[in-house]
Amino acid sequence: MFNYKKLIQLSLILLFSFLTNIVSADNHNISEILELIQKDLKTLEKAVYAGSINSNNQKSTNENSEDVLTRHLLKLSDIENQFQELTNKFEEINFKLDKLSNRLSKVQADNQIRFQDVEKVLSSGEINQKLTSKTKKNESKNLPGSSTPQDLGSISYKDTESEETTQKIQSVETTSSIVTEKFESEKNILPKVSPEKQYEFATSFLKVGDYNTAERAFREFVINNSEHKLAGNAQYWYAETFRIRQLYTDAATAYLEGYQKYPKGEKAPINLLKLGVSMVQIGEKEQGCKMIEGVEKQYPKANQSVLQKAKYESKKFECSKQKT
């Protein structure tokens, strides 16, 4: 900024020189001296004006620079705050991921233990022993469709004797005719066609609710076509005929046989689930729950309806409390 004190000093010096010139200018023209003074004043005015302009420009430049710097500092401060928030969120997400990873590891370890328990139970033969003992306690006489699976192509003496007892009011010829026809029908229930047609034939009895005949048909199919791709399905429906009639011990035996013979069949996941449910229903809750909860572990790619059903049955039978 221009100093006005210097301007006053210069003015006084000029005035002093002017007076000195007047005193010493005996032979000079006063008008020439005044012209010189005017020129000096104009030169001085130009210098003062130029100095004031430079001062104003410099001041405005400084002010603009300060404004720009202030704005940049504010933006940097906002960026720092946003970066801090993102860092906090990132750390929070990492913490949650660590917790989730730990939980998944625990669940996997727990499922592995349960699956090993299921394998041990199924391979030890303990279930077979318990099912046999349950059968001996519950049955009073040996009837087809209860106890262990029988040869459906034959008929026992007791069955023939009971049939004849109910027919005493009829003639001897009528009675022998009835017994003979039933014996022949039990001997060959499936038609002599392809396995696929036989499977459809056995399934037709389920559709009409004739579960006794369906039991015999599916059992015969499994015996005659044990290596066929539909054998696992037939074994499952064979077990279902017992479950529908609430013969849970026989159902559990049939499901167990299906799991052991056809562990990779189409019906294997639902077969294991029904085996677990049947075990719970005959009083073996601990082992039944292990099988129910082992369905998802052993068959993770099973149909979602089966997996959801397994979770429902586990909750229904309070299998989580059974572990504690």
Rank of each mutant, 00 (worst) to 15 (best):
M1V: 07
Q9M: 12
F16R: 02
F18K: 02
T20C: 15
N21D: 01
A25E: 08
N29K: 14
I30E: 06
L36K: 06
D40H: 04
T43Q: 11
K46W: 02
A47Q: 08
Y49R: 14
S55V: 02
T61Q: 14
H72L: 15
H72M: 13
L74F: 07
K75Y: 13
D78Y: 13
D78R: 15
I79A: 15
Q82V: 13
Q82G: 02
T87Y: 09
N88V: 10
Q112V: 06
D117A: 06
L122G: 00
L122F: 03
E126S: 11
N128F: 03
Q129D: 05
Q129H: 02
T132D: 12
K136A: 09
S140P: 02
K141H: 13
S147Q: 08
I155T: 03
Y157K: 12
S162W: 05
Q170A: 10
T175P: 00
S177A: 05
F183I: 14
S185I: 10
K187S: 09
P195T: 00
Q198P: 08
Y199L: 13
E200W: 06
E200P: 04
F205K: 01
L206Q: 05
V208G: 00
G209A: 04
D210C: 02
Y211V: 01
N212V: 04
N212D: 11
A214I: 00
K229N: 04
G232T: 00
T249G: 07
L256Q: 00
G258C: 07
Q260L: 15
Y262V: 00
P263W: 08
A268Y: 03
N271S: 12
V277R: 13
S278D: 04
V280K: 10
V295R: 08
E296L: 12
N303S: 15
S305F: 14
E318M: 12
